[in-house]
Structures are given as C-alpha cells and as structure tokens.
C-alpha cells in the first residue's frame, strides 16, 4: 500500500531521518540525581526539604517537596539562571484517598535549558494549605483556583482564591476528593432545585478581589459536610416542590 502511495506523491519531501536525534529522545535514566542538574542542585541546596525523587515513565524527573518552603524553592528554580524554569505548565492535585495527603503537583519547563521537572508537594489533610506561586508565574492563577475548587487546597497569598468551575455557592464540597461520590452528595432533585435558585445575574468584578481573602461558603452546608452527612440527607428536608 505504501508503495502505491509513493507513486502518487512526486512532490513529497520525505525529509531526513536523523538517527542521532532519535536516540536522544529514547535516553533512559537510572535515577541517579547527577543525571538531572536541577535535582542534584535541589538536593544540595534544599536537602532537608526534598523528601524524595525518582524517574517516572522512563525520562520524567519527579521530586517530592515539603510544602513548608515550597515558595522559596520554586522562586529559586525560576530565577536561578542555571535552572530558569520560566514556564509553569500545570498546577494540579492528586488525592489518593484513604487518609493519604493530597499532593499539589507542579509541571515546569525551562525554555532556556529545554528541561522539564515535576514537583509534588504532599499537603496534610488537617492543614490543607500551601503558598501560592501566582506572583512568580501568572499562569498559576487559574490553575491554583481550580485546585482550590476541586480539591480544597488553600493557596496562601493568591489574589483571587474562589471557586472557578463550580458555582460560587456550591455546597457539596470539593468534587475531586476521593470521598466525594461521583453523582454528588445531594439528590438530583435537590441539585436541580439549587441550580435553578442560582442568581444568573450574579457576578463579581476586578475591584471585588481582595488579596488572600478566602472564598465564602454557605456556612450551614460546610457544617453538614464536615459532620459527614452524605447525599439525600439535606435533600429530603428541603424538598418542597
């Protein structure tokens, strides 16, 4: 089939097959810190903060950091010319459930050194907060809001920390946590009722933003979730139509 196609493709530029480049991408790592300059420097400079490191999926370097000094370390990673991670590709969270800490994950890339790094900061469940890196990378703004919305991690120093995907008054909790049921905590009737009670004209403006102010939530609903009430319970009491 391929040969038949070639006959019709006189104008095709087949392009060179570079063997060197191909080998470079398939380079495998043993996991020794000396193979990744940033990991080596991190261990040397912030040895106490680095809880571990390894190579994931063949060529991706991951380091676990304690959340206490994360901002300082990330600041250094961005501004040190030897590392210069100028691109914060992604900020997200992982919840393993079963009482394990929620991890905040940073995917960084340095355009100057063409080097990628992933940092994972385990945040204990009883103190779900970490410093915001919004002042270093503007791209972290919405990404951190999303982590706050879906995981409930508070980012200290974030200029506008409020829900981004779910409605502002969403009362069922943080959906991507493992203890959150797939169909939500309330019954469908209650969810529909609450949805239609939303004020569609509600908005907020740039002036409303208060630095570091935590987003307000329906106090009764927070209590209900904290008490471990699940699904249907609030719904049954409020089904009126």
């Amino acid at each position: 089939m391929a040969d038949e196609q070639k006959s019709g493709l006189d104008a095709v530029d087949e392009g060179p097959i570079g063997s060197d480049a191909r080998e470079a991408t398939q380079r495998t790592f043993s996991g020794d810190p000396s193979e990744h300059p940033t990991i080596a420097a991190l261990l040397e400079r912030f040895g106490d903060e680095v809880q571990g490191h390894r190579v994931a999926a063949g060529d991706q370097w991951v380091a676990w950091l304690a959340p206490t000094r994360s901002h300082e370390i990330l600041d250094w990673l961005k501004n040190d010319p030897d590392h210069a991670y100028d691109m914060m590709s992604d900020v997200t969270g992982i919840d393993y459930g079963a009482g394990r800490p929620v991890e905040v994950v940073y995917q960084m890339f340095s355009t100057a050194h063409s080097r990628a790094l992933r940092l994972r900061c385990p945040v204990p469940l009883d103190a779900m907060e970490i410093d915001s890196v919004c002042d270093l990378w503007k791209s972290a703004d919405w990404l951190e809001r999303e982590v706050f919305d879906l995981f409930g991690v508070t980012f200290k120093g974030h200029p506008d920390l409020r829900r981004i995907l779910m409605p502002d008054d969403y009362a069922e909790g943080h959906p991507l946590r493992k203890d959150f049921p797939l169909r939500g905590r309330f019954s469908r009737a209650e969810q529909t009722r609450r949805a239609l009670e939303q004020d569609v004209e509600r908005f907020y403006l740039a002036d409303d933003l208060q630095a570091g102010a935590p987003q307000e939530m329906d106090a009764s609903a927070v209590g209900a979730i904290a008490d471990g009430e699940t699904e249907a319970t609030p719904a049954q009491s409020r089904e009126d139509d």
């Binding site: 409605p167 529909t192 949805a195 239609l196 939303q198 569609v200």
Partner: peptide, 10 residues
Amino acid sequence: PYKLAPVLRR
C-alpha cells in the same frame, strides 16, 4: 451543567 441550568430556563 447545573451551573448553566438557570440560564437555559431564563
């Protein structure tokens, strides 16, 4: 989504 439901209704 539920967030859009009141918009649809309106």
